[in-house]
Nucleic acid binder design. Structure first.
Lengths: 273, 273
DNA sequence: CGGCGGCTTGAGGTTGGTCAAGGCATGTGG
DNA sequence: CCACATGCCTTGACCAACCTCAAGCCGCCG
């Protein structure tokens, strides 16, 4: 089935409609559809949610740690970071939240939030109350299946993040961070083949990968000196993708080989019970 | 509803049956039931899976990175660690896998594994093929709701792990690691109020929290010197739980305040009618 | 009894944090 | 249009935290 067709069938005002919920073009739909194919009914179920816009200005919190949660938030446009603040004044950035992400999924299912999310530019998003979210999952199995995959990707990204900080050298961490950010943006159509633009400061990057901002600066300079990347202002170019890959041991979650299993395609593994 | 009753009604040979699937005493059931109340039909659905035992000897892999996955594994007894190995010879331990856990959930939903899991003692577990897993989730909404909570807890534990390694001082990391391990074991009845026993070496702990084994030794000595913990062989005692909590800024995922919102109260859980 | 895995302790060197100063954009108000 | 403030990047100097290497010890098990 062609997703673009159903898109057009849903658009209220046809191709030119600009205020209407142009559902199939939404990065969230792009992402889910890339994991599990959605049909017209799925899109119809999502339409009311994705039609309600909410804008959080740059620098304002979207969710705040230890406050009661009011639902989940689907990001339409704009970037945010999720972080935890410690009593010693340090900050750990857990990740960049990009269009198509759900802020705090699955972590916002708890009664009170475990993280804070703040926009690093104006963020346009949709709030979905917990029970509305439940209703949709119940009614549309394809959507809940896709969300299970979202959770799996999320867990794998977090695991890789731990590995970065715990056991990789700073230059490898930074390379990995840049590759992962690029891959995620690419999956929702927000990056070209080898460059992307995100308003991340070196301090945010340091708080993400466990370095001081001054060391991020030195390590980034090193990557540039070796001709692996270039950056100016907020745009990063990956000049030598292969070099970066082997430096960072990066393995993309988004390659087609990692897609959901089909029944009946299992293979035996050596040294396996 | 009394879960113990349904346990007895399921035990094939009554109270004395030792080989039979004594479902309600299984740590996996204990854990799910603590998140979302299960009924007799849920237990019946789980019985065939939990009746099939499989033992992996100490030191053998349960799953291996980059090999094709054959399903997920529910741990009945014994401990394992999950880790990633890097080309520079370093190892990052992502976590301790304890009875009641699912090895690689949700990460093992990928076609090939992203981590390796190895038993650190003999591990007794149950393999569940992907499609069988899917069938049960579909048939038993309470189980899939509980699994969503499992995924949420998993994500939060990983996030906290990142924070540990990235921004906490070594002594705080170790304190946090011990508190978290204790809380998780406690939730499945494998720890007393202030002590637990796990065959973790100092090297494994170091690989988990991003320190060398010799530094783990020094930091552990420091915790002992301050009267916060004691350890001998493989048993750890938390001598000053409050002191450890404030040192580590630990917030338990398992406190009753963080429990799932009950259906029918303000919020509902996906797939819950 | 010998071997081995894991714990303990020491010495020394590097990495990466901290502090500090300066530069360069961008934005704002006079 | 300039003066100034602000935020972020850049660079240098210094030093401590933590890693590495190494040796010795202990308890367990074959």
């Amino acid at each position: 089935m062609d997703i673009r067709r159903s898109a057009h069938s849903l658009a209220k005002d046809g191709v030119g409609g600009k205020a209407g919920p142009y559902v199939a073009d939404h990065p969230f739909v792009t992402r889910l559809n890339g994991l599990v194919p959605l049909d017209d009914n799925d899109l119809t179920a999502l339409a009311p949610i994705l039609g309600r816009n909410l804008v959080v200005k740059k620098g304002r919190d979207i969710v705040r740690e230890s406050y009661v949660t009011r639902g989940i938030y689907i990001v339409k446009a704009g970037f945010a970071i999720r972080y935890k603040l410690l009593h010693n004044g340090k900050r750990q950035v857990l990740g960049l939240t990009i269009p198509g992400d759900i802020v705090g999924f699955p972590a916002s299912l708890f009664k009170t939030a475990f993280i804070t999310a703040v926009g690093i530019e104006n963020v346009s998003l949709h709030r979905v109350a917990h029970d509305e979210f439940a209703t949709i999952c119940l009614a549309r199995p394809a959507i809940s299946a896709a969300l299970l995959w979202v959770a799996a990707c999320e867990a794998e990204i977090l695991a890789e993040h731990i590995t970065d900080i715990g056991r990789r050298a700073p230059i490898e961490r930074l390379a990995h961070f840049l590759l992962e950010t690029h891959a995620r943006l690419r999956a929702v159509g927000l990056a070209s083949a080898s460059s992307f633009e995100v308003p991340l400061t070196q301090e945010m990057i340091g708080d993400a990968i466990g370095l001081s901002s001054t060391h991020v600066n030195r390590v980034l300079a090193e990557l540039k000196r070796e001709g692996l990347v270039s950056s100016q202002k907020r745009t990063f170019k990956l000049l030598d993708v292969d070099g970066l890959h082997s430096l960072a041991e990066f393995r993309s979650l988004f390659s087609s080989q990692e897609r959901p299993l089909r029944p009946g395609s299992e293979v035996r593994i050596p040294n396996q019970p």
